[in-house]
Amino acid sequence: MMTPERFAQCLASLRWTTIDLTSALQCQLSWIEAMESGEAEIPDDLGSWLERLSACHEAAGIPACYRDAQA
């Protein structure tokens, strides 16, 4: 079972806000916020999906060669 803390960590690694997740799932923002605060349980399938997405993003990393690049 995913904890609210891990839920927030996964969203952060994806660089998603609660609004981004709401848009992706096409659900109510209040439900996402309730999961984030621990007021609602995070469904196992949603937690697993977020874990898989987060792992992919963490493994891929961020290209560093663009830092301080001028347009």
Rank of each mutant, 00 (worst) to 15 (best):
residue 1 M to R: 13
residue 1 M to P: 12
residue 1 M to S: 14
residue 1 M to H: 13
residue 2 M to W: 05
residue 3 T to E: 02
residue 3 T to F: 00
residue 4 P to H: 05
residue 5 E to L: 08
residue 5 E to W: 01
residue 6 R to G: 00
residue 6 R to W: 00
residue 6 R to Q: 09
residue 7 F to M: 03
residue 7 F to W: 04
residue 8 A to I: 07
residue 9 Q to K: 12
residue 9 Q to T: 08
residue 10 C to R: 07
residue 10 C to Q: 09
residue 11 L to W: 08
residue 12 A to K: 12
residue 13 S to R: 11
residue 13 S to T: 06
residue 14 L to K: 07
residue 14 L to V: 04
residue 14 L to N: 05
residue 14 L to D: 05
residue 15 R to A: 02
residue 16 W to Q: 09
residue 16 W to F: 12
residue 16 W to N: 05
residue 17 T to N: 09
residue 17 T to F: 10
residue 18 T to E: 15
residue 18 T to I: 04
residue 19 I to F: 07
residue 19 I to T: 13
residue 20 D to R: 12
residue 20 D to V: 03
residue 22 T to G: 07
residue 22 T to A: 07
residue 22 T to K: 15
residue 22 T to M: 14
residue 22 T to R: 15
residue 24 A to G: 01
residue 25 L to A: 05
residue 25 L to S: 04
residue 25 L to E: 10
residue 26 Q to F: 02
residue 27 C to S: 12
residue 29 L to F: 08
residue 30 S to Y: 09
residue 30 S to K: 13
residue 31 W to M: 13
residue 31 W to D: 09
residue 31 W to G: 01
residue 32 I to A: 05
residue 33 E to M: 05
residue 33 E to W: 00
residue 34 A to R: 12
residue 35 M to Q: 08
residue 35 M to A: 02
residue 35 M to P: 02
residue 36 E to D: 14
residue 36 E to Y: 13
residue 37 S to W: 09
residue 37 S to L: 11
residue 37 S to F: 08
residue 37 S to Q: 13
residue 37 S to R: 15
residue 37 S to E: 11
residue 38 G to V: 02
residue 39 E to N: 12
residue 39 E to W: 07
residue 40 A to T: 03
residue 40 A to Y: 15
residue 40 A to K: 15
residue 40 A to L: 14
residue 41 E to K: 11
residue 41 E to A: 11
residue 42 I to P: 00
residue 43 P to Q: 08
residue 43 P to A: 05
residue 43 P to H: 07
residue 43 P to F: 06
residue 44 D to S: 13
residue 44 D to W: 09
residue 44 D to H: 11
residue 45 D to C: 06
residue 45 D to E: 13
residue 46 L to D: 03
residue 46 L to G: 03
residue 46 L to R: 04
residue 46 L to I: 05
residue 47 G to Q: 06
residue 47 G to V: 01
residue 48 S to T: 14
residue 48 S to C: 10
residue 49 W to L: 12
residue 49 W to P: 01
residue 50 L to N: 00
residue 50 L to P: 00
residue 50 L to G: 00
residue 50 L to D: 01
residue 50 L to C: 02
residue 51 E to D: 12
residue 51 E to W: 01
residue 51 E to N: 06
residue 51 E to Q: 10
residue 52 R to P: 01
residue 52 R to K: 14
residue 53 L to F: 08
residue 53 L to M: 15
residue 54 S to M: 03
residue 55 A to I: 00
residue 55 A to T: 06
residue 55 A to K: 09
residue 56 C to Y: 11
residue 56 C to A: 12
residue 58 E to V: 11
residue 58 E to H: 06
residue 60 A to P: 00
residue 61 G to Q: 13
residue 61 G to S: 12
residue 62 I to H: 11
residue 63 P to K: 12
residue 63 P to C: 08
residue 63 P to V: 04
residue 63 P to N: 13
residue 65 C to E: 15
residue 65 C to N: 13
residue 65 C to M: 12
residue 66 Y to P: 00
residue 66 Y to M: 10
residue 66 Y to D: 11
residue 66 Y to K: 11
residue 67 R to W: 10
residue 69 A to E: 07
residue 69 A to F: 10
residue 70 Q to P: 01
residue 70 Q to F: 01
residue 70 Q to E: 10
residue 70 Q to D: 05
residue 71 A to Y: 11
